[in-house]
Simulated assay, not measured.
Amino acid sequence: MKFSDFLLASALLLAPLSLSAQHGHGQGHNAAGETHAHKAPHGGIVRTAGKYHVELVLAGSQMTVYLLDGKEQTLANKGLTGTAMVLQGGKTTSVALAAFGDNQLQGALPAGATPTTAIITLRRGSETISARFDKLASTSAKAKVTSYACPMSCKDSASQKPGSCPKCGMALVKKA
């Protein structure tokens, strides 16, 4: 291991956890150190980052990041750049995040990667926005298990939380 990799891995492990709390998958609960609950508008994990919130969505080898305002509304990605320092299996990898569409940044994880921790650093003009995401492997597994759909298979009825089908009004059922 190169010395620079050692320093980076050490920084990931020693970075203070009190910077912000982690919230997963739209559960809307308060985490330690938080004074309010968060929603995950895109089904990811939301962290407080100063006056902003950062949402991280992991899907296979794709990492998608959204910058949210104080009311968890998605902000445009114009002028936004970013990187992710990802810890997986004791190794640290830097992932460049590039603007995609109007409101997201995306980056590709190495094939077969199962990240455990990610530190997202976004730059907007002279402003730096950082958020730390821990226990990603266990959070991703929970996200795959908890999904709901209409028993009548109505189009666009899939949801990550229980509720009613927007088409027919039937109660959504949990899928494995």
Rank of each mutant, 00 (worst) to 15 (best):
R132N: 06
F100N: 08
K91H: 11
Y52H: 09
Q88K: 13
R132V: 05
S147W: 00
S138M: 11
T121V: 14
A108Y: 02
S157F: 01
G70T: 12
L75T: 07
A76C: 12
A76I: 12
H25K: 08
A141G: 12
T146M: 10
E34Q: 12
A176D: 15
S130Y: 02
K39M: 09
C150Y: 01
A143G: 10
I119H: 01
V95H: 03
A141H: 07
A15N: 08
P151S: 07
I129Y: 00
K155L: 14
L58I: 10
V145N: 07
Y148M: 00
A149S: 10
P110K: 12
Y66H: 15
S153R: 13
L172Q: 00
V145C: 08
C150G: 03
L13T: 09
P41E: 09
P41Q: 10
K155N: 12
L87M: 15
K167I: 14
G28D: 06
T139Y: 03
H36R: 08
H36S: 15
G107K: 00
L109Q: 00
K39V: 11
Q27G: 11
V46D: 03
Q27I: 14
A84M: 04
Y148W: 06
M63W: 01
S140L: 09
R47K: 12
K167G: 08
V46R: 01
Y66D: 04
K135R: 13
E34G: 05
L109M: 06
A84F: 04
K71V: 14
K144N: 09
G169E: 05
R47Y: 00
V46G: 01
V173N: 04
G43E: 01
K161C: 05
A96P: 04
S20P: 05
S20L: 06
Y66F: 15
A111L: 14
K175M: 10
K91P: 09
Q22I: 08
A21D: 06
L13D: 15
L19I: 14
G26Y: 01
S164Y: 05
I119P: 03
L97F: 05
L56F: 05
G79K: 15
P110Q: 13
H23M: 05
A176I: 09
A149K: 00
M170C: 10
Q62T: 11
H29P: 05
K91V: 11
L13G: 13
L172W: 02
L122E: 01
Q22L: 11
A76P: 13
C165R: 02
A11Q: 10
S10T: 09
Q104M: 14
M1V: 07
G101E: 10
L109S: 04
H36N: 09
T93R: 10
G90T: 07
K91R: 14
A37Q: 13
H36T: 10
G90H: 12
A32H: 09
L75Q: 15
S20Y: 02
L13I: 06
M152C: 14
T114H: 12
A149D: 05
G163W: 01
L13N: 11
A171S: 13
S126V: 08
R123E: 14
G24Y: 02
R132S: 04
L136H: 03
K175E: 04
V65S: 04
K39T: 13
A40M: 03
A111H: 14
K2E: 15
A108G: 09
K91D: 14
Q22F: 00
